[in-house]
Amino acid sequence: MLAYITKIKEISDRLLKEQKVDLIIGFRKGTIPMMNEPCFAKTASDVKNLVWDSNCGINLANYLTNRKEKIGVIAKGCDARNIVTHILENKISREQLVIIGVPCKGMIDRRKVSAASGCEVAEVLEKPDGIVVKGPGVEKTIKKVDVLQDNCAICIHRNPVISDEMVADPVEEQKGVDRYEDVRRVEAMSPEEKWKYFEELLSPCIRCYACRNACPLCYCPTCFVDESKPQWVGKTLDPIDTRTFHFLRAYHCAGRCTDCGSCVRACPMGIDVRAFTKKLEKDALEFFGWEAGMSLNERPTLDTFKPDDPDHLIK
């Protein structure tokens, strides 16, 4: 990690100095533990504030939308895939970007850390042998694998698919991961069980739209939830409206979602929003052999029609 940040700063400094970019989008320390925040570094002193550790889960592709400058962007595996989608969907052009690729071994889930430490977390340090959590009168070392974000634990694209500079050699990709165990469990449920499952899943939702705001795919000038003519979805906390919002948002992500986990990370109520997008991500893979953001040469799978597309799913 220390090596990463040194290299990130070195590259950022160089790019700014050589005026190859107008700004660097990366992370700096947040005001509370485990909450690094995105930052736009435009000067050498800004660069000094850049950090890299296992709390950089926010997807930085989200900050590229419709920007006009030349940008150096720090990109993990998932960020890079979303940058590809952003380029394909005309949210930014490839020429505007210098992608600083960061091989990633997963980000930690602050809720899991809190739960594992059993106290209010005051400070978190990453050591080679684990994560050291300090709280009032407590100091505890936790294994990183135990507190990884759910999506990171099953990630199979840890290395950026696209980059101009790399801060380190690629890390080994995880092999033999069962990515969809949870989706299959829901699929196997009876309609009544499913109904109950989703009812409980969404019951805490307060319709704050944090999941939408954190998602790099949600960049429409006017989101369907904000439109009133026609009113696609009611604006109340009625469970039907809430469900409609989540279903439709998931559909908008179908064939485009990279399972970056930003939505779950952003949710203040701790809802596993990925339960929706992941099913569609699985279907895109199984029906169309498609993983989003892997290539600049192909539009997202649902944007195209091929005569040999499977049709059993609509019968």
Partner: peptide, 15 residues
Amino acid sequence: PAICSSCGVCLSICP
């Protein structure tokens, strides 16, 4: 056009 996001789905999908 005021609410078009220029994402290009329509260009890609129109036969």
